[in-house]
Structure formats: structure tokens, C-alpha cells
Design a protein around this nucleic acid. Structure first.
Lengths: 212, 212
DNA sequence: AAAGTTCTGGAGTGTCAACTCCAAAAGTTT
DNA sequence: AAACTTTTGGAGTTGACACTCCAGAACTTT
């Protein structure tokens, strides 16, 4: 019933919550997001979530039909959190300076995390892509929003003539997001931001070379 | 006891196997690799592996101390398989033509898989990075071999003067591996090779721009 | 061929995780 | 304040999964 529905369709189905109920639901999603970011979905039991959120068994199942539904709420939450955390930089990636500032921000963020955990969206996507088609679709939408923000900045540069006419903002945006995702993965595995820096610097240098 | 040891140290510890024993062990690792590639480590039970390999419970635990040890064998197997599959291209990435042929090969491979499953090494690394330090270290070694192969090709171009002196083969190799990993992830999530193509094309175009 | 080792079958065990259920407390509406 | 809905606590159920154990078969070595 929830399977196959988009995240928005699910939201429309949700029963109304009292203020207190909303607060409890939020605590559950936040706790689950943090746990699943570090331990993965399979590595996080509903018991773990209950303990971290300070709620009882029945509360989790009052607000979420099952664990898969909770996971989809976590994906929605993390998508917003990741995009919000990059603002206002992400909304204005329309110059080399802006791109470099964004790069520094991302590298700093991973450094502050001691390179623990990769991308909150990418990790979940990787874990669930072949076992939960709805989760995969939600993650795809999240990546779409991310790529779109990058593309808009590059498109603005293109429109202004700062990027050569034969440069393709769409390809560059997708390539940049891929480099970022791969850089985050390598950084997590190597426990070292060098890979993230190399990936983003390579892409930004490439974009710079395309400024006529 | 096995924890903290490198994969090579473990291999040195292993008891000798008869030909038949080796064959059984191989069947288990191969079956586990295929299952874990598609369903993940957590999504693959030892029962699943037994059924797929056609062995009994005790056989799995005769050849592997526990599931974690089996997973490390899977990582070793997949690392070899992934690098071997890219040969001989990967061993000679020392020209733009070679890089483009390699790119086509990788894109084709994902297309033939219908974009199912990401990178056999990267997926496992992402799943286990924060829960199994030994597995994380094994994956890091695997990525190291991969990056090294790419770097050697670029270094050869650099030595021959085909790459500008200020180009950094190490950064380009890491960036290329990151772009590949991110491209594979996006391709898996989007069910579409466009992202992999965009990522690799961007990096290779960048390398081309660095040929003086 | 005897002795020793490796390999195999399969039943059994303990734990843990997802999910259910019911009754009571808290909150809202009329 | 009565009727109704939402929220909460926690005990209980069910199934799955990692791992153990033991006895016998197959194979190797002497």
C-alpha cells in the first residue's frame, strides 16, 4: 500500500498528528537518521532507535507502519538535512570562487567528522538499491535535487558566457555530483580527505579550463 | 585473532586444503560474492550461501571461522575479479585512446548488468566501513591497487611529456577513481548509465586538456 | 592396509530483531 | 464534563539467523 507510492503521496496519506505526536515522530526520525548514518540500516534495530529517541516499542509502530516506512522517512529527512547544510553555498554555485568555497566547506565537514560515515543519502542508497525499490526511488529524487542545484549554478555561468558554448552544464553537474559521491566514499574508506579533495579539485579545475 | 590481521597474514595462517577442499571453499566464496554483490552482506544469510553453493552448514564453518571471515574472503575475491575484468585495459591506461576504451568498457559492463549493483568493492566498503575495521582496511587496500594501476598509466604519459609538467598524475588518478565510484553509485540508483558516462567523460576531457 | 587427517551432513541451540496487542494515560472536541 | 481521538507503556509472539556439535564418509600418508 505504501509500496510504490512516492514520498509525497505517503505524506498526503499520513493521519494528522497533535503537536506532541509530531514532536515524538520527529525524535524517532532524528534518532534513526543518526544511527543509520553510522551503522547502516541493517545495523540499526528498532530497539536501538527506541532507546536513542526515548520512546517505547508501540510508539515507533504508531508513527510508522514498519521499518521500511521509517527508513523512507529517514531518507526524506537526510535529503533535506544534507541540502540545507550546504546552503547558502549550494544555491549559488555560479562562479569558480563559489565552487571552491563549496569544496572547502565539504572537505571541512568530512574532516570534522574524522572521515566517519560517507554521504548520508549515498550510503543508504547503496545499501538498499537492490532490496527496496521505493527507497531507491526516493534516493534518486534526492540526488536529482542535488544535481539540479549544481546544474543551475553552472547554467547561469553558461548563460552569462563565462562557460564556453560547447561546455555542457548538465554533464558537468552530474560529473561533479559523481565525483563528490565517489570522493566521499573513498574518504570514508581511507579515513583521509585527500580523495575528496582530489575529486572536487579535478572537476573544478576542469570547469575552470572551460571558462573561455 | 583474525581481527586486525591483514588479508595476507590470514592467508598464511590458513591450513592447507586438499584439492576437493579448495574447490568447496571456492564454491562458497563465489556463491557468497554473487549474493552479497546483489543483496548486500546483511541481506545474505549463511543459509543463502549454503543453498547457492550446494554445501551444508558445517562446510561453511569448516572453511571460515565466522561470517566476518567469509566476508573478508569475498572482498579479496571481488578485488581480484574486478581488477582482472578490466585487464588488459587497466594495465595500459597511458593514452587518451586507452582511457576512452576503458571508459567504454566500464559503461558497457554496467549496461549489460542493467545497472544492477554498483561496484562490488565499493558497495561492500560502504556497508561495512563503520562496523568492521578489518573489512574497511581490506577494501582500502583494494582501492589502492586500483588507483595505482590508473596512476601508472598517467605517470607514463607524464614522463613522456604528453601531460603538462604541472599536471599531477596522483591527483588525477584518485579523482578518476572517485568519479568512477560515484558514477557507478549514481548509475545504480538512477538505473541509467548517463551518470557514469558524465563522470568518466568529464575526467578524461580534463586529462585531455592537460595534454600540452 | 592401518592410522591419521580432512571433509561432509544435518540436527540442534541461543539470541536477537521485527512486529503485535491491549489497556491506560493524555489530549482534543463539543 | 462527556465523548472521542491520539499517544504511550510494555509484555508477548514469531521467525530468522549465526553458530555449535557430533558422527560418519572420503581422502591422504606411512
Amino acid at each position: 500500500m505504501l509500496a510504490g507510492m512516492t514520498a509525497d503521496e505517503i505524506a498526503a496519506t499520513a493521519p494528522r498528528l497533535t503537536r506532541k505526536g509530531q514532536a515524538t515522530r520527529d525524535r524517532i526520525v532524528t534518532a534513526a537518521s543518526e544511527l543509520m548514518f553510522l551503522r547502516g540500516v541493517a545495523g540499526t534495530s528498532t530497539d536501538d532507535v527506541q532507546a536513542a529517541a526515548g520512546v517505547s516499542t508501540s510508539q515507533v509502530y504508531h508513527y510508522f507502519r514498519d521499518k521500511r516506512t521509517l527508513v523512507r522517512a529517514v531518507i526524506a529527512h537526510q535529503t533535506d538535512a544534507v541540502l540545507d547544510a550546504q546552503q547558502p553555498l549550494l544555491g549559488r554555485l555560479d562562479s569558480l570562487d563559489a565552487l571552491r568555497a563549496w569544496r572547502d566547506f565539504l572537505v571541512d565537514m568530512q574532516r570534522q567528522r574524522d572521515c566517519l560515515g560517507g554521504c548520508p543519502i549515498g550510503s543508504i542508497g547503496s545499501e538498499l538499491a537492490e532490496s527496496d525499490p521505493d527507497a531507491r526511488a526516493d534516493v534518486a529524487v534526492g540526488f536529482g535535487r542535488w544535481e539540479s542545484a549544481i546544474r543551475q549554478g553552472l547554467q547561469a555561468m553558461h548563460d552569462r558566457g563565462e562557460l564556453r558554448a560547447d561546455a555542457d552544464p548538465e554533464q558537468l553537474a552530474l560529473g561533479t555530483l559523481a565525483a563528490l559521491q565517489g570522493g566521499l566514499l573513498l574518504t570514508q574508506i581511507r579515513r583521509d580527505t585527500v580523495a575528496l579533495e582530489a575529486a572536487l579539485d579535478s572537476m573544478i579545475d576542469h570547469i575552470e579550463a572551460l571558462t573561455s
